[in-house]
Simulated assay, not measured.
Amino acid sequence: MKKILLACSSGMSTSLLVSKMEEEATKRGEEVKIWAVAQDKAEHDMEEADVLLIGPQMRFMKKKFAVTAEKVGIPIDVIDSVAYGRVDGVAVLDKAFELIEKG
């Protein structure tokens, strides 16, 4: 099972994106756990995740999260702002899988 963590300012704005990503994963027959949290909970939840994707409005937090991500051994990146704005679950899921595969 792949575990994908999304972090945004409040943890709420990514909830629709999570749903779209779950729909796509189901279509592909992929077993995933995808969840979104607010920035203050992200570092704690990284221990359970295979990848962290950060909302584009929080790109300034990437360096801070990178320290914890390195400790727990997961890749992180900022969600593409166009994919985020379009709530493009396919593109964001593809990015998450790509990062997990790279390790």
Rank of each mutant, 00 (worst) to 15 (best):
L6N: 01
D94G: 06
T26E: 15
E98N: 10
E22A: 11
V87R: 04
E23I: 05
R28K: 14
I100P: 00
D80K: 09
C8L: 05
T14C: 09
G85R: 07
D80C: 10
Y84W: 10
L5V: 08
K62I: 14
A96I: 03
G85D: 11
E70K: 11
T26I: 14
R86G: 06
K33I: 13
W35Y: 10
F65P: 00
V90Y: 10
E43Q: 10
L53C: 04
E47P: 01
M58Q: 08
R59K: 15
I100Q: 08
S19A: 15
I54Y: 02
D45I: 02
V82Q: 12
M12Q: 10
A7H: 01
L52R: 02
Y84C: 03
V67H: 10
I74G: 04
D50Y: 05
A83G: 07
H44W: 09
I54W: 00
K102N: 13
D94I: 01
S10T: 09
R28M: 11
L53D: 01
V67T: 13
K102R: 14
V67M: 12
A96G: 06
M12C: 02
R86F: 09
M58T: 04
D94T: 03
A38P: 12
D94Q: 08
K3Y: 04
M12R: 05
P56L: 07
K62A: 13
K95C: 06
S9N: 12
I34G: 01
I54D: 00
Q39I: 12
S13A: 08
G85H: 10
L53V: 01
T26R: 15
T68N: 05
A7S: 12
E98C: 08
M46R: 06
M58V: 06
D94F: 04
V72K: 14
A83S: 15
V90A: 11
I4N: 03
M1V: 11
V82P: 03
F60M: 12
V18D: 00
M61L: 15
V37H: 02
A7Y: 03
V32Y: 05
D40V: 15
T68F: 04
Q57G: 05
D94H: 05
L17Q: 02
Q57I: 07
D45V: 03
D94R: 02
A83L: 05
S9Y: 02
E23H: 07
E23A: 11
D88K: 07
V90P: 01
S13Q: 03
M46L: 10
D45E: 13
E30L: 15
I74L: 12
V87A: 08
A25I: 05
E101V: 13
E22K: 15
G103N: 14
K71P: 08
I79N: 02
E43P: 00
L6C: 02
K62E: 13
K20L: 09
S13G: 05
V72D: 13
G55H: 00
P75E: 07
C8H: 03
R28F: 09
E48H: 14
L99C: 09
K2W: 11
I76M: 07
A38G: 15
I34T: 05
A7L: 04
L6E: 03
A25S: 11
E30R: 13
K71A: 14
I4P: 00
P56C: 05
A83D: 09
K63R: 13
E101H: 12
K62N: 07
V67D: 08
V72S: 13
A66I: 04
M1H: 09
V32T: 14
L93C: 08
